[in-house]
Structure formats: structure tokens, C-alpha cells
Design a protein around this nucleic acid. Structure first.
Lengths: 200, 200
DNA sequence: GGTTTAGCGGAACAGCGCTCCGCTTTGAAG
DNA sequence: CTTCAAAGCGGAGCGCTGTTCCGCTAAACC
């Protein structure tokens, strides 16, 4: 992991560089890298101390930069969530049909969830300050899902009435749990099939 | 809650009365009652101490009677799980079609899960000694589900290939989370619709 | 009654989230 | 380069968990 090349660091910063001290900015990056690494091996509910240790900082530093767990998780996965959100309109334009676009987009979302250990579970968790995570994911992705659903309805590929929020949550729920006998993708596929028009 | 009428208590005991001491048997019952009550208000992952307090016993007593959390949860809900399992064949005999029986049975299962706060989540949990709970539910219900699925396949109402375990897990997952904007029943209904034959 | 031992209670330990405050480092003014 | 306010840091410490362990109580059997 190359951390070299600090010559010009005014690239795409979320909002950390806001008249902050140099060591604070450095720590924030270290923290994000450490969290990303720990999340892979221990899941998103890894002990805070573990992340602090991996980053070589005290727990206080984590809480100052990321007051709640959700803030940290969101910061780590922001780019990927953003990419997923942006993929919605793109797919709608490129796919054969709105329903096909919806399918591909859901695939993207599912892939994202199943590869992040424990993330799907955390998304639905009602405890431990994960609510903000839930909120962010939903704020960002539900509108995209709504757009895809609307397009599919307009193309008469599915009946109207499906709530985007409900669908997203169902998909998230289906992605919970690692088990060789359980393939979330297959169940999501079933769910999507159920979305289509029942033939009279 | 009437706990009277101890005259003849040799009714349907699971296995507590096995040459045990009288106070042990009494404590076991108290514990089950207390746990059932606490589960309603605080969910199945309520603190052990809370259950112990409600029952008026020490925590050691709980661990002696129910070594893992799953043992306690299973003991509390055994009757209902059993009833659900037995309803399978009954519905198959009484319903209009195997698929209708499957639907009604799934409804039963979903009702059970959504009314027990946190149970669905615990079912999928991979931590805190809930594995045994998972195992019990599956051992008891998957065969019933398999029977219903087989019947529906035989009646050519659904295509073959659906794994009972996978379906049960998906349904369980869909029941996670209390939220006015999310109705598990509706999503399970979608899933079941997806199960049916796609019309060519 | 006496004796044995199953069973009980809860102190105690370990792992967690989160807070709080004394100390260090930074960056700019002199 | 020195000075110095304050931004930032670290980790001890608190409260709440699950789980164990052992001295003591009281049930059961003689």
C-alpha cells in the first residue's frame, strides 16, 4: 500500500482538510486505512480498540474523528456507495430494458453487501449507533432504486405499488449471513422474479 | 398470570423432571416464565442479569439450567415451534393445493417470527452461542418445508430445485427488523411469488 | 435426628463502548 | 529562533455486558 507522493494532496478530499492541523489530517487517513483493513478481517463491528491499535492511535482519536461507528463505516465505504448510486442512471441508459437495468443494479448492490463482512447485518441493526449508517445508505440509494422501479413500471415490466425503501431493505436483509448452503444472490433473484407481473 | 393448580403436575414435561430436586424443578419453571416475560419486552437478547432478576435467582442458576442462550430461547419457544412444525402436514391435507398450504404455513412461520422481538435476528446471528437456536429451528422446520415444497413440485405448481434450507433462511432474514415502513409479510409474499413457474 | 451432595447465589474476571482530562504537538506571532 | 495559546492526542477509567467458580444452603435420604 503506497502512501508516497504527498507533493500535491489537494485531490478529491471529502471534507477533512478544513483548516485542520497536519497531524489531524494524517491521523484521519491512517484511521480510514486501518478501519478498512480491520473491517475486511473482523467485520464492521470489530472492536474499536482493535482499529485504534491497528492505526497506532488511542481510542479517543477515533471518537474525535468519527463520533459514532456509523460515521467511520460510512467514511470507509463512501466511494463505493457513491459509485453504486451513480451506476443506476448509467445502467438505465445502457441496459436492454428498465427491468434489466434494475436487475444489474441490484446485482451490484448485492455484490457490495456480501463482500463486506457483517455490513448487511449492521445495516439493519437497531443498536450501537448504526442508525446513521442505515440512514446514509437509504438516503443515497433509495432514490436510485425508485428511479429504476419507476422506469420499469413505465415500461409495463412490473406492476406499480412496490415501495423502493421496502425493496432495498428486503434485499439488504437477504444478504445477511455467511453460509455455504445459503446464497443471497439466488434469493434476491427470487424476490425480483416475484416483482414482475403475474400472468393472468 | 395464574400459576395455581399444582395438584398433579405430571403433564407434558419436556425433560426437567429427571430425578431432580424439587427446588431445581421449581426454579426451572420460574426461569422459563421470567424469560418469556422479559423476551416480550426486551427481546431475546435481553441481559442475562435482567432475566435472573425477574426470576429472583442468581445468574449461576440460569447458566446451570440453560448453559447457552440458545437453550433458554429454545425452551421458551419449543411449544410454538413444535406447533408450527406439526401444522405443515395438517395444512397440506386441508388446503386447496400444496402451494396454498405452503403459503399458509409460511404465514404461520412469519407471524411467529415477527411477534417475537429480535428472534429473527438471533436466528441468523453468528455469535453469542445462538448457533444452537439456528440448528434447532432448522432441524425441526426444514423437513416440513421440504415436504410442502415437494408436494407443490409434484402438483406442478412450482419448478423443482428450490432448497428448503435456503428458502427458510431467506424468510427468516426477511423478518428481521421492526419498522413501520417495512412489512416483512409483503416481502415474503414477493419471494413466494417468485417461487412459482415463470410463464413461458 | 444426621449426613451427603445437588443446587444456589453472587463475587469476580474479561471484553466491550464511550468519556474525560492532563499532556504533547503544532503553527503562527513576536 | 523563541514563545505560547490551543488543537489534538492518548489511555486510564467508568459502566455494562457474558461467563465462571466456589463457599454455603437446604433438600433428600437414611
Amino acid at each position: 500500500m503506497p502512501t508516497k507522493g504527498q507533493s500535491g494532496q489537494s485531490e478529491s478530499e471529502e471534507k477533512p482538510t478544513r483548516g485542520k492541523r497536519a497531524d489531524a489530517v494524517r491521523n484521519r487517513r491512517t484511521l480510514l486505512a486501518a478501519a478498512a483493513e480491520v473491517f475486511v478481517t473482523s467485520g464492521v463491528d470489530a472492536p474499536i480498540r482493535e482499529i485504534a491499535c491497528q492505526a497506532g492511535v488511542g481510542v479517543g482519536t477515533i471518537y474525535r474523528h468519527f463520533p459514532t461507528r456509523a460515521d467511520l463505516v460510512v467514511a470507509v465505504y463512501r466511494h463505493q456507495v457513491e459509485a453504486c448510486a451513480e451506476a443506476g442512471p448509467t445502467l438505465l441508459a445502457s441496459a436492454d430494458s428498465p427491468l434489466a437495468a434494475l436487475r444489474q443494479w441490484v446485482d451490484l448492490f448485492v455484490d457490495f453487501l456480501v463482500t463486506k463482512h457483517g455490513l448487511a447485518g449492521a445495516l439493519q441493526s437497531d443498536s450501537s449507533g448504526f442508525e446513521a449508517l442505515h440512514a446514509y445508505f437509504l438516503d443515497r440509494l433509495v432514490p436510485v432504486c425508485a428511479q429504476l422501479l419507476d422506469a420499469a413500471v413505465a415500461a409495463d415490466e412490473i406492476p406499480p405499488g412496490t415501495q423502493p425503501y421496502e425493496l432495498m431493505r428486503a434485499i439488504g436483509n437477504l444478504c445477511i449471513g455467511h453460509d455455504p448452503r445459503y446464497d443471497p444472490r439466488r434469493m434476491v433473484e427470487l424476490l425480483l422474479r416475484g416483482l414482475q407481473h403475474p400472468r393472468p
